[in-house]
C-alpha cells in the first residue's frame, strides 16, 4: 500500500534520513522504532508532504506522492496524528472532530461524530470545551477521533504514547488495535520500543537516519541487539 524507496531528507542542512526504504501492506500495523533524533518524525512529515524529500520516492497505492502538497496527500486518505497531537487548542472538541472531516462532503459526518463519542464517552461530556483544556489522555483521544473522522486508509501516528501515563497509553493502544481490526492500515512511530513491538505485526529500526534492522515484531522483541539498545534489558 505504501512504499518508500531510497528516501533521503535534510533537516536544517543536517542529513535526517538517508536511503530509507520500507513498505507497508494493506491491513498491516507496522512500527518504526528509534531513539530521539533518529529521523522518525521527519519520515512521517515527508510522507504527509509537510517536508520535502531530497532524493528517493514515496508511492501510495502505486501513485508517486513524493512531490504532492500536504492537502493533496490528505485527499488520498493518508491521515497523520502529528507529534504532540496537533490539536486546535482554542477550538472545541467537537469543532476539532469536524475539522477532521474537512475533506468530506457526505451526510454521515454526524453519525461518525456519534461513533467517536461512543468509543470515547468522555469526549461527549466535554464536546463543547476547548480541546486545549483537556488532560493529555483526553487530548490524545480527540486526536485519534479527529483522525478517524477523515476515514483514513492509512493512519500515521507519531509518538502516540508521548507524555501520557501508562494506563492511558494502554487505553490509546487498545483503541489503535481496534482500528486495525476494522481494516485501517496503521504505521506507528514510537520511542517506546517495547510498546510498539508488542502491538504491531512488523517493525523497522531507525538509527541516525538509516534503517538498521527490520522484521517480525515478535522476533525483534527477542533480538539481543534490540533488547540491549531499546528495551533496556
Amino acid at each position: 500500500m505504501l512504499r518508500v524507496e531510497n528516501l533521503s531528507c535534510n533537516y536544517k542542512q543536517i542529513i535526517a534520513l538517508s536511503d530509507v526504504s520500507l513498505h507497508i501492506n494493506r491491513g498491516e500495523i507496522v512500527s518504526l522504532i528509534g531513539a530521539n533524533g533518529a529521523g522518525k518524525t521527519t519520515l512521517l512529515r515527508t510522507i504527509s508532504g509537510l517536508h520535502n524529500a531530497k532524493n528517493g520516492n514515496i508511492f501510495f497505492e502505486g501513485q508517486d506522492i513524493t512531490k504532492l502538497e500536504s492537502h493533496d496527500v490528505a485527499k488520498l486518505a493518508i491521515t497523520q496524528i502529528p507529534e504532540g497531537r496537533g490539536l486546535f487548542s482554542i477550538l472545541s472538541v467537537e469543532e476539532n472532530l469536524r475539522l477532521g472531516a474537512y475533506l468530506r462532503a457526505d451526510s454521515d459526518i454526524e453519525d461518525d461524530i456519534n461513533k467517536i463519542y461512543e468509543k470515547f464517552p468522555i469526549l461527549k461530556e466535554k464536546s463543547h470545551e476547548y480541546a486545549g483544556t483537556l488532560s493529555g489522555g483526553q487530548q490524545q483521544m480527540v486526536a485519534v477521533g479527529r483522525a478517524l473522522m477523515s476515514r483514513p486508509k492509512l493512519l500515521l501516528l507519531d509518538e502516540p504514547s508521548m507524555g501520557l501515563a501508562p494506563i492511558v497509553v494502554e487505553e490509546i493502544f487498545k483503541a489503535i488495535k481496534s482500528l486495525r481490526d476494522n481494516g485501517t492500515t496503521i504505521f506507528i512511530v514510537e520511542q517506546n520500543a517495547f510498546l510498539a513491538l508488542s502491538v504491531t505485526d512488523r517493525a523497522y529500526v531507525l538509527e541516525n537516519g538509516k534503517i538498521v534492522m527490520s522484521g517480525n515484531s515478535g522476533e525483534l522483541l527477542k533480538d539481543e541487539k534490540v533488547k540491549e539498545a531499546y528495551l533496556g534489558a
Partner: peptide, 21 residues
C-alpha cells in the same frame, strides 16, 4: 471560517486535515 481558525492555531495540523493553506 473554521479552516481559517485552524490554520491560525496550528498550521501543520491544518495542512494534515487537508486544508489548502
Amino acid at each position: 471560517g473554521q479552516a481559517m481558525m485552524a490554520a491560525s492555531i496550528n498550521v501543520d495540523a491544518a495542512k494534515l486535515m487537508g486544508i489548502n493553506i
